[in-house]
């Protein structure tokens, strides 16, 4: 039995989750605290942007999460459609609101950073537009998932949508390279290594890790909740059957 199928058993998954959760939660709190401290006290103001650069430490990790969570949903959707892995649908369903939240944050904090730097809350450039499309994809995914009488059909339809919408992810990633736009080009995830000073790179990376850990914590709790809900549905159906 592969690792992949070992977690298909809900009870084993629940047991593992309960063991892991306290540790991941603790790490999340620690990394958030360290990241916040560094982004406010040890990192210098930018020579061009001044203190406003501190928005970067939440804006960039939020944008990473927006893409990371969508990629996870797409991978889970492939697992759901091809191997019919029982936890994949739950993972996709549980991830969507988190991803939508981070995408909203990427847009909102970017707007709050753009106003003092560019003089506008919003510009219609390729990066901003493609992230806005991503936000609507998340909303569509969630709406489709809840649009059917049978949950199973909603799961599968949303999975197809998630895979189709994945074409947007490379567009977001490379939009700043393909079009010369107002948005700055990548300075961390580059083939030739990051072009950003270590005093700013460290808090950024730690915040990035903290956001990922936060996603894992909320995701695990949500999957746990979904598993309980599946049991509840069984009980409810039994009650209805008895009544008839």
């Amino acid at each position: 039995m592969s690792v992949f199928h070992r977690f298909a058993n809900p009870n084993r998954f629940l047991k593992l989750t309960n063991q892991v959760l306290p540790w991941v939660s603790g790490l999340t709190v620690i990394s958030l605290a360290v990241g916040l401290y560094m982004s406010f006290f040890t990192s210098p103001p930018d020579y061009q942007q001044g203190e406003s650069v501190r928005i970067m430490y939440i804006h960039v990790p939020s944008a990473w999460m927006a893409m990371f969570v969508y990629t996870s949903i797409a991978i889970a959707s492939v697992c759901s459609l091809i191997w019919r892995h029982p936890l994949a649908d739950l993972a996709a369903k549980a991830s969507a609101p988190i991803g939508a939240g981070f995408t909203f944050l990427a847009l909102a904090t970017g707007s709050l950073w753009g106003k003092p730097m560019w003089g506008a809350w919003w510009v219609w450039d390729a990066r901003l537009t493609s992230v806005l499309i991503l936000f609507f994809l998340y909303l569509g995914h969630m709406a489709l998932m809840h649009a059917f009488e049978e949950q199973e059909r909603g799961n599968k339809a949303a999975a197809v949508l998630a895979i189709v919408g994945f074409v947007n992810i490379p567009i977001i990633k490379f939009s700043v390279d393909w079009w010369n736009t107002l948005h700055q080009p990548a300075s961390v995830m580059r083939a030739d290594g990051p072009s950003i000073d270590p005093s700013m790179l460290w808090p950024l990376m730690i915040m990035g890790v903290a956001f990922k850990l936060f996603y894992i914590v909320v995701l695990l709790i949500r999957i746990k909740s979904e598993l309980i809900e599946a049991k509840l549905r069984k009980y409810r159906r039994a009650v209805v059957d008895k009544a008839h």
Binding site: T129, L139, A143, A147, F148, A157, V160, I171
Partner: peptide
């Protein structure tokens, strides 16, 4: 057509289609 097939049998299918389709139409429009 993708959105039309995905929303078959959905509650409020007609309202769902614009939400699913319009974001994907933006590149063509641009």
């Amino acid at each position: 057509a993708i959105a039309a097939t995905l929303t078959l049998g959905a509650r409020r299918g007609g309202v769902l289609i614009p939400l699913l389709v319009l974001p994907l139409y933006i590149p063509t429009l641009i």
